[in-house]
Design a protein around this nucleic acid. Structure first.
Lengths: 239, 239
DNA sequence: GCATATTTGTCCGTATGTATA
DNA sequence: CTATACATACGGACAAATATG
């Protein structure tokens, strides 16, 4: 058992007290999803049915249902007769994720300029920008990464589509897997703080076209930086 | 048991011979997905664990895993302690589906005009148009609806994104649920045959902007027609 | 290459809680 | 209010595949 795995299991046991109510499988999936997002279960690690089932005091059948949920969110891969593993993204995955982001996020921002759309609801966007700046002030770069993801989720949310929200929630959760195989989160997240605020400012000035342009540059820069830094680690964890 | 349900169960038993190998739950989900798409299990019908499990000779645990898969595809809703039901779309759902279609399909077509994109791969689009025309010639309007969905899936596929393909596959499968509560499929599908071909022709002429414009009108007309015809049935099946 | 131990895949039977008649 | 039907979750069982020595 690795040190990370041991710590993750302690946290799981602590969470056990909270799952008394309804929908056990969904609750288990929620817990595992958060552990994966936080990096307690890093990409590539195996999710043992026996070990996690014992830690949470749930049956294998229930745990397997939770795995199914996470598999469909692409956070877990299921290899036949070998079990469940935390997904390891390829460089192609990252490219595809950014293709989706560029398409959806830019369209959501652009359509704000069209007549007949709902009134701007920038509260969530502004809150995410503030959270990111606050986290940076406290040198909490993991939290800053979370705020950045919330910022982009809020941008996509401006489209007002339940299905696009689901898509982006999933895609950005996947992207987090890539963050965990990158070192130096500060160097990766810090430069984008001010660019997030610039985009918010443009939106508040009703300059949808300007916001879209800034966002396009942002995503292209981010994609390039991530893909260039990625392969070194991918070679280690791929199979 | 209704007549439709009885027929569906016979078909399920016939399918039993095919699911001997691996991944039982996925195979069961495949079968149920096709039955739902074809309308053997119409929107609103209950999917009894015992009945279907007996018909397919599989255990409840395996069947429940199949239900989970379909639930995450939004084809099935799971009400706590009441079981699994084929989903009944609301008018809002249809509106959201068309918002996604407009955004994704138009962007996929538009980006074809940009430099550096992959070479046009219109084979699947052209094949879907031909399939639709052939089905119409044989008065098979269910098959014509299938071809129409394949046409739009192929359009979205021009973006070359695995995740967008998944999104559109799910969204268009949902849209099929709406088709099943509408009568007169001929009146609904026939007018769009020539419009599909017009879009294809524009793409073959490298006129991405023209294709995008035609597609936008198409989707707006289709959305309006569907939503106007929908509420009469929604009132009957909604709860 | 072979034998063993571990882990997963599938299924059953049962106890409990919930909604409906 | 009681009774019935059903879904949920559990624990145990066995076969099959994999990993380990």
């Amino acid at each position: 058992m690795t040190a990370e795995t041991g710590r993750a299991l302690s946290e799981l046991i602590a969470d056990r007290a909270l799952l008394g109510r309804t929908g056990t499988a969904e609750r288990v999936a929620d817990i595992l999803r958060e552990r994966i997002a936080r990096g307690f279960f890093p990409p590539g690690s195996r999710l043992s049915e026996e070990r996690i089932g014992n830690a949470l005091s749930i049956s294998r059948n229930t745990l397997r249902e939770a795995f199914r949920l996470l598999t469909h969110e692409r956070l877990v891969v299921h290899r036949l007769n070998r079990g469940a593993f935390v997904r390891v993204l390829t460089a192609d995955d990252i490219g595809d994720i950014y293709r989706v982001r560029l398409l959806v996020e830019c369209a959501a921002v652009r359509d704000l300029g069209e007549p007949g759309g709902p009134p701007y609801a920038l509260e969530a966007v502004a809150a995410a920008v503030a959270d990111g700046e606050e986290a940076a002030a406290r040198d909490d770069w993991a939290l800053c990464g979370t705020a950045d993801i919330h910022f982009h989720q809020a941008l996509a949310g401006l489209a007002g589509s339940e299905r696009l929200d689901d898509l982006m929630r999933g895609v950005l959760a996947e992207l987090r897997l890539a963050f965990h195989v990158m070192g130096d989160p500060r160097r990766f997240h810090e430069p984008y703080l001010s660019r997030n605020r610039d985009i918010l400012t443009a939106l508040e000035s009703a300059d949808a076209a300007g916001a879209e342009r800034l966002l396009g540059f942002y995503l292209e820069d981010s994609r390039r930086q991530l893909i260039e830094a990625y392969p070194a680690h991918a070679a280690r964890t791929g199979d």
